[in-house]
Each structure stands twice: as C-alpha cells, then as structure tokens.
C-alpha cells in the first residue's frame, strides 16, 4: 500500500472521504482566496481565517495543455508518456474562482458553465514510492 501524501499541506482536506478545497476568507471584507494566505489581497487586512471552499463548482474558462511543460513541471511522466491535460478556472460556492487541472482533456468534453467535481488524485511518485496527491476537477456525471 502506497502512502498518499498531499503535494502541499493546506490545499485540501486530506485524508477524507469527501475532500474539500481549502482557502482563506478575510474577517474584515469577507473576500475569499485560494490557496489560503495570512493577508487579504482585497483590503490588506491581516485577519483571515481558513475556510472550506467546497467540492463542486462551475467551469468559468478552460484550455488544454497539449505539450509537456518544462521544469518546474514535475510529474512522473516522460515526453513519451505525457498526456494532455485540461486547465481551467472553476467558480466555487465559497466565492472564488480556482485554477486547477481538469481531467477532461479534449475540447469536446469541456464547456463553459458545466458543473465540475473536485477529485484528489495521485500526481507523481516520490523516491520512496509514495503517491504525491494533488487536486483536480472532473466532469459531474450524475446528479
């Protein structure tokens, strides 16, 4: 059994059977941001708190990454095994648009306004064979 380690602590609740994206909300102006940060980009306040941003959202815009990015990209892929991936901004019920990898990776599968579901997936393996986990969004298949 591989150990599953988040690529960065604090991006999403983990481990969890129903993981949520985590952000911060300003205690003064109530604006939310992702990832969480100790200060507010809107009003400059230093009073923010961690909040769950939700696990479902709506696709605001999208594209497809067709070529393997150079470093700092760090996956377990090679040029030969690289598979195109979707990239988009997803409007979250927590009141912020979050940039994320999308599992659908063809233009036919993606449409602005479509509902999206958060998923936590293995992204690469580290030297000890652990799975490094990241977040992405998939298309909602059932309601």
């Amino acid at each position: 059994m591989h150990t599953q380690i988040p690529i960065k602590e604090g991006l999403f609740t983990w481990p969890s059977s129903k993981p949520q994206l985590l952000g911060s909300r300003c205690s003064r102006c109530a604006e939310a941001t992702f990832p969480a940060q100790p200060d507010c980009r809107n009003c400059g306040s230093r009073e923010t708190h961690i909040v769950e941003l939700g696990d479902r959202g709506t696709l605001w815009t999208w594209t497809i990454q067709t070529f393997m990015p150079k470093q700092p990209y760090h996956s377990s892929e090679t040029e030969a095994t690289f598979a195109p991936y979707g990239v988009g901004y997803v409007e979250m019920p927590g009141g912020v648009r979050v940039e994320a990898r999308l599992q659908p990776n063809t233009a036919q599968q993606l449409k602005i306004g479509m509902p999206m579901q958060l998923a936590i997936i293995p992204f690469r393996s580290d030297e000890q064979g652990n799975d490094i986990m990241t977040f992405c969004f998939t298309a909602v298949t059932e309601e």
Binding site: I7, K8, L11, P35, W60, T61, W62, T63, Q65, P69, P72, Y73, H74, S75, Y85, V87, G88, Y89, E99, A100, R101, I112, F123, T134
Partner: peptide
C-alpha cells in the same frame, strides 16, 4: 507562489492567454 503551482503544470503564460481568450 508555492512550488506545487509550477510542479502541477499550472504556471504557463500560454495557458493564461488561452484561458483569458476562451472566456
């Protein structure tokens, strides 16, 4: 920005221009 943002392939200027154009 934190390393994960680049490592997971979200930090390409080409992507941004495509995302902004698409919208």
């Amino acid at each position: 920005l934190d390393d994960w943002y680049g490592e997971t392939g979200l930090m390409l200027t080409t992507q941004f221009f495509a995302l902004k154009t698409q919208r």
